[in-house]
C-alpha cells in the first residue's frame, strides 16, 4: 500500500530526470537498465528509482550542511562566525541523525523485501515454457525440454507470459543476464538455479555473460527473441521437425574452448542437463527434482529419503 502512494509522484520525477539527463546524450534507449521490456525488469527499475530518491534526500541534506559549514567557518581574517572549540556534542542533533537515515532506509526496505519475495515466485501460469540454459566455454546452450529443441547463442521465447530459465554451467561460472528483461543469475557447475523472466511484447533483447570466465568471455553474447505464443509454438514444432538433432558428438564439440556462431537443433541427447535443481521458484521451498516424461516435465519437491 505504501507502494501505491509513493509511486505516482516518483514516476513523474523519474520521467523528468531521465528525459533531461539521459536523452540529452542522444541515445536514451541504450540505457537498458532504465528501459525494461518486461515485468521483472520493471519492478527492479521501480526499486532503483525509489532508492535513488531516498538517497538523493540524504545527499541533499548532507551537502547543504557540509557546504554551509565549509563556507561559514573558514579560517579567514574577519570571519565573525562563532568559534566554539570545546563544543563536542549535542544530544538531540545526534538522535536526529541516527533516526533520519533509519527512516529513509525503512522506506526502501519494505518494498525491497516484498519485491525480493515476489521475484522469486513465478506468476501462476499453466506449464510455463522451460528453457534449460548451460554456459559453456565460451558459448550459451539453450535446451527446451518441453519442445525438444536446442539452440546455441540465441533463444526464442513466447512474449507476454513468464518463461522459466534453469541455469547451470559446464564451464567456469558465468552469469546469465538479459538486462531489458530483468536481473541476472549465475550459472554454476553442479547446481541448477532458476530465474523467471517475461517479455511484455515481441522484440529482440540482447543478453551477455556478466561473470568473467576466460579469454573468450566478452564474446558470450546472445539474443533473446520474443515472439507471439503462436509463433513460438510454430517455431518449436517446425524446428523439431526439420532441424537435425544434436548428437553426443555435437555436444562434445561444444565443450571445446572456443567461440561459435548460432546453431539450431531439433532435439538433444538426454543427460546433458542435470536433473536435480535447487531453488525456491515454483515449489516455494528447497530442492526439487525435474522429472522429464512424455507429457512434459514435472517438479517434485525433494525430501531427504528420495535423495538420488
Amino acid at each position: 500500500m505504501f507502494h501505491q502512494w509513493v509511486k505516482r509522484p516518483y514516476r513523474k520525477l523519474m520521467l523528468v530526470a531521465l528525459v533531461a539527463g539521459l536523452f540529452s546524450a542522444g541515445c536514451g534507449q541504450q540505457y537498458v537498465m532504465l528501459d525494461p521490456a518486461g515485468p521483472v525488469g520493471k519492478s527492479e527499475l521501480h526499486l532503483m528509482i525509489l532508492a535513488s530518491i531516498a538517497m538523493a534526500i540524504v545527499i541533499a541534506i548532507v551537502f547543504v550542511l557540509f557546504f554551509y559549514a565549509l563556507i561559514r567557518f573558514r579560517d579567514k581574517p574577519g570571519n565573525t562566525a562563532p568559534y566554539r572549540p570545546e563544543w563536542d556534542g549535542h544530544k538531540w542533533l545526534e538522535i536526529v541523525w541516527w533516526v533520519l537515515p533509519a527512516v529513509l532506509l525503512t522506506v526502501i526496505a519494505i518494498p525491497m523485501v516484498k519485491t525480493t519475495y515476489a521475484l522469486d515466485r513465478i506468476p501462476k501460469a499453466k506449464d510455463p515454457v522451460v528453457i534449460d540454459v548451460t554456459s559453456l566455454t565460451w558459448k550459451w546452450l539453450f535446451q527446451y525440454p518441453g519442445q525438444h529443441v536446442a539452440t546455441v547463442n540465441y533463444a526464442v521465447i513466447p512474449a507476454g507470459e513468464p518463461v522459466l530459465f534453469e541455469l547451470t554451467a559446464n564451464s567456469p561460472m558465468n552469469a546469465f543476464w538479459v538486462p531489458q528483461l530483468g536481473g541476472m543469475e549465475y550459472t554454476m557447475p553442479n547446481r541448477v538455479l532458476p530465474l523467471w523472466l517475461e517479455a511484455s511484447k515481441p522484440g529482440t533483447y540482447w543478453g551477455r555473460s556478466a561473470q568473467f570466465s576466460g579469454i573468450g568471455f566478452e564474446k558470450m553474447m546472445f539474443n533473446v527473441k520474443a515472439v507471439s505464443p503462436a509463433a513460438f509454438q510454430a517455431w518449436a514444432q517446425n524446428t523439431h521437425a526439420t532441424a537435425s538433432p544434436m548428437t553426443m558428438q555435437d555436444y562434445k564439440q561444444l565443450l571445446k574452448f572456443n567461440t561459435v556462431g548460432n546453431a539450431t537443433y531439433g532435439g538433444y541427447p538426454q543427460d546433458t542437463f542435470p536433473t536435480v535443481a535447487s531453488g525456491f521458484t515454483l515449489t516455494g521451498s528447497g530442492m526439487y527434482t525435474i522429472e522429464h516424461n512424455k507429457n512434459g516435465i514435472k517438479y517434485l519437491p525433494m525430501t531427504m529419503s528420495t535423495n538420488r
Binding site: M33, G41, S43, E44, L45, L47, M48, A51, S52, A54, M55, A56, V58, I59, V62, F63, F66, L105, I108, M112, T115, T116, L119, A175, P179, G182, G183, M184, E185, A210, Q211
Partner: peptide, 28 residues
C-alpha cells in the same frame, strides 16, 4: 565527505536486492 556520501548512496542502491540483480557485475 561529499564523495563518500555519494559512494555510500550508490552502495545502498546495490543493497536493494532486486536492483542488485541488475547492477551486479556491471560498471555501476
Amino acid at each position: 565527505i561529499p564523495t563518500f556520501v555519494i559512494g555510500g548512496a550508490t552502495g545502498v542502491l546495490l543493497a536493494v536486492v532486486p536492483a542488485d540483480y541488475q547492477f551486479h557485475n556491471s560498471y555501476f
